[in-house]
Design a protein around this nucleic acid. Structure first.
Lengths: 410, 410
DNA sequence: CTTCTTTGTTCGACATTCGGCCAAAGTCTT
DNA sequence: AAGACTTTGGCCGAATGTCGAACAAAGAAG
């Protein structure tokens, strides 16, 4: 018979004990996370941060070094004692690819595992040509970039991809994508697994852009909305530092939210949709009706930059429409940062003026008190880099790293 | 010289091996989570689920039993071999309190750690009397309920509370609550800590109602919106099974989202707010203008139940207004379930008809395909129970349990 | 009544972690 | 410039935790 609850001997915690465990560093993979995130750069820092014994830290770091995940750099400056050896992610032998597929373009980026862009290439490409043709091109581009960058294809650790349509993230398959005929349920990860033997993560393009924006430009923000105002209008959502994809992965599909009582017809069949009022395509149509030369969102940008009064007025009005919808989303979601990107963000002076005007008028003071509304800081590579970040974070996840260390024990 | 990176098995896993670790059971606290959640009820089940050795499981379960967290019940039916011993949460010696504070009422619930309601009590109470008076009453009610239920106050493990205003969850302090004068920044957790020596978790009342609804009525849904249509209108958000509170904890504040181009004046100073159009208070005002007897949301409910045509029409119209806003939120958030509660949900036939009509007209098929819009299933105790759930989940969190086991080591 | 299956416990082997000790490598003081 | 001090990292024995095999328990199946 097991003894009854012990009479709680004086097991009171020693006074100087670390505060339990900050729930980090419990495995080699988590130690690597500390290193790669920049939270800790030396063995001693890791020990302090995790509360682990220095010897334990050393042992884990040794394992990470032995498996090629970590480099031991030159020693850093002393703080009064023996100078520490600086640890860093071994970027030379680990690469990922980020793929940005658009309706009419394809951009492939090669990044090292530390997030540094090694090479990019953009090509015109019709996504409606179907998955085999498009992904075949992507594969060749990846091979080419690897060669140009002097990286062994064996060092590719994972692949991220952003596509212009809804995706079931867990399987990486597009789900009834409107502008991607032939892609419904196509197993994109399997395609890449067969060619490169690595895991591919596929997400909506707006989601990966939001990820890039948050990780690169606003790392201190955990709640961020990324509004893409281009031909259409979409939104990427970062909640608690992670992408929010919703129950079916279609979260952020705000292009067809109704604005006011307006009746502009939308291609979706409804009327008054945000996209039909403020989307680049809709603006171009209306400018054309005014006799101006405009067929796409980029023409609107051009006209605004030329100082065309009608175009400026229209973009500002579009900003107000976006802002009216955004005001509601701000109340609902309570983000800390809203980033406006997409083709129309090129004229963000005009667009953001309208957005800010509407949001600050309609949102609650509590929610807007510290709210920042800013133009996108990432450039044309945003989606490709965001896809690459998706791949990097997968490859460096403690779980993946621990598996690699355990799987190839030696 | 360290060997180069091993040929890192890409995705190939040994066929018979357990699927790495389902990231559960890594500590006694996590074993308890399996038991309390009902995921596993015997030692053998825990071993199968976690992949741990049976001896390890036994040792952890012994520790949990020794510390009074787990009971070993009578043995269950055999499946062809030795019958397993059934394990269960020891509910007799662990209790929590759930506090529901409203503008003019106070409800306190006592629950055992398994979530069973032991006792409840509601009293009229003016929250504007200030924190000392109100919390003093809550304290006395808790003492009384503990006595009535025959529970030693020492068995109280934590306290949850829902209050009618914005709260900074991490500190448990109200932040500029409009209808709680005198409560700004009042340290509610400290108040309870001094009296009961346990942690108190304070959240917005709509949030805890959403939690109760999800945990009790829709446990298989990870993305849920709880709409409370009462005097005002608010929304609780469950994302990935957890409460979404936003950057400042004011997420879900949808009462002042603009609906269409309407111009009804709102107490917030703006016009066209959802609350001013569809809130119970606004409906009552309008019915009164029509010469009917109505001063609060409950009068609207009464009139609808009496079959008053104006009231029915008005509630249905309110449902449409709510639905119009909700349609946008559904596109943005992509929930799986929307629950409509609050005082006006008592006439959910009329209200939901309007909501569904607007949502299914305006939301995208992809998002609405599997979307359920349903009336609240929890009753008047929803907020108190939700607050209790907050407390239970804190007390049973692996971290808390592991600390308890380590702290009182024998 | 024997054999089989499943559960839970006991116990020795093995791995991990800790903490103390020591060497290394700098700064600071005299 | 030499010695004292501080901080880092490696080494090693002790403590702890986990595993797997063997075994006992308890019922089902034949």
């Amino acid at each position: 018979m097991p003894p009854p609850p012990p009479p709680s001997a004086s097991g009171a915690q020693p006074p100087g004990a670390p505060p339990y465990s900050p729930s980090a560093g419990q495995s080699p993979g988590e130690v690597l996370a500390l290193i790669s995130s920049g939270a800790a750069a030396t063995r001693a820092e890791i020990a302090r941060l995790t509360g682990l014994a220095r010897s334990t830290v050393s042992q884990r770091v040794d394992a990470l070094i032995a498996h090629g995940f970590v480099d031991e750099d030159a020693e850093a400056g002393s703080t009064g004692g023996r100078p520490p050896r600086r640890l860093s992610l071994r970027t030379r032998e680990h690469a990922v690819a980020g793929v940005d597929l658009g309706a009419s373009h394809c951009r492939v980026a090669l990044l090292d595992i530390g997030g540094t862009l090694l090479a990019v290439r953009e090509d015109p490409l019709t996504i409606a040509d179907g998955p085999e043709a498009v992904l075949g091109h992507v594969e060749r581009t990846m091979q080419r970039l690897l060669e140009e960058a002097g990286r062994d294809p064996k060092t590719l650790r994972s692949i991220g991809a952003g596509v212009p349509g809804p995706v079931e993230f867990s399987t990486g398959r597009p789900v009834d994508p409107p502008i991607m005929p032939g892609w419904h349920q196509f197993p994109i990860p399997e395609f890449f697994d067969e060619r490169f033997g690595v895991r591919a993560l596929v997400d909506n393009d707006v989601n990966v852009m939001a990820l890039a924006e948050q990780r690169r430009a606003f790392p201190d923000t955990s709640y961020l909305l990324y509004l893409k105002v281009g031909t259409g209008i979409g939104c990427g959502i970062i909640a608690d530092g992670r992408l929010h994809r919703g129950a079916q992965g279609s979260a952020g599909d705000i292009g067809h939210i109704r604005v006011g009582e307006r009746e502009e017809l939308c291609r979706c069949g409804n009327s008054g949709c945000l996209e039909a009022i403020a989307g680049g395509a809709a603006l171009a149509v209306r400018l054309k009706e005014l006799g101006l030369e405009a067929s796409a969102g980029l023409d609107v940008v051009r006209l605004v930059k030329e100082g065309n009064r009608e175009a400026v007025r229209m973009v500002r009005e579009a900003g107000r429409a976006v802002g009216e919808v955004l005001a509601g989303l701000v109340n609902f979601f309570n983000p800390e940062t809203v980033v406006v990107g997409g083709a129309l963000a090129a004229v963000h002076d005009q667009l953001l003026a309208g957005v800010r005007e509407a949001v600050y008028r309609r949102s609650h003071p509590l929610a807007t008190h510290v709210l920042r509304i800013e133009p996108s800081r990432t450039g044309e590579n945003a989606a490709a880099i965001g896809a690459g970040i998706l791949a990097i974070e997968h490859a460096l996840s403690p779980r993946q790293v621990d598996m690699a260390l355990a799987g190839a024990a030696g």
